[in-house]
Amino acid sequence: MNASPVRAEGLAKHFGRLRALDDCTFELPEGSVTGLVGPNGAGKSTLLSLIAGLARPTRGEVSVHGTPVRGRMHPDVSLLTQKRPLYEQFTVREIMRAGAAMNDRWSAARAFEVLDLLAGVDPDAKVRTLSAGARTQVAIAFALGRLPKVLLLDEPLSDLDPLARDETLRIVMTEVAERGTTVLLSSHLLTDLGDVCDHLLLLDEGRVQVVGDIDEILGDHRVVVGPAEVELETDGVVVDSSHTPRQTTALVRGGSAPSGWDSTHPDLEALVMGYLRASRNRKLARQ
């Protein structure tokens, strides 16, 4: 069966009146590394926990390799949650033993291989004595010991120093290169994402704003700069525009380059920033 590693159809999760996620439809290609971005509270963690089966959707369905996820972890999926939960009083070796005990499919060799990468983590150290970087490495080793085909990472880089951040991304990229794992990772660190991701999934207020191949997305958007007094006329959609006394800058999706305006394609950071700014402006306008 040639089913997509992750496919969501009309996926929604409501907490009472709060629509954490609404009508999300997308598909992740096999072996892609997708950056999941959006402002705080956009529904990133909710989406990841729905794919992992930690929570049940209010509406819609998410399936992994064609199998619908229903309140239970799909055997092919590994999720690293934001808090990187580990049993504090266990040693690293005991954590890995716990991984073997809790999983039908478990590769201790793979887990210890990941622990040995980079500076290496002492397997006899207690988890609570580990640095944030080493802790993340243990959590990733634990996630990869399941031999996942889909790896979900929720803010894997937060509270890591630049070196640990770089090393964490190297572990993930090694995994992708060696095993062709499909990765969905949420992060606020756009520059880091740009280095590793080939796809983008941009959420805002629980809805998918942009999804697809990063190069195609960037090619489909333009940053146009023109004089402040001229009205921007375009056949595309203006995502966001900002004005200074002398000039107007706008992020435009689709359409052709407006004549008389200075037009370039944005980089990933500029694109995401444009959408985030637009999101904040919409919220401010509603208040």
Partner: peptide, 14 residues
């Protein structure tokens, strides 16, 4: 409190 339930819930064990 410590969030470690998520560790168990994201494994194969029911």
């Amino acid at each position: 409190e410590q969030g470690t339930h998520a560790l168990a819930f994201t494994q194969s064990v029911s």
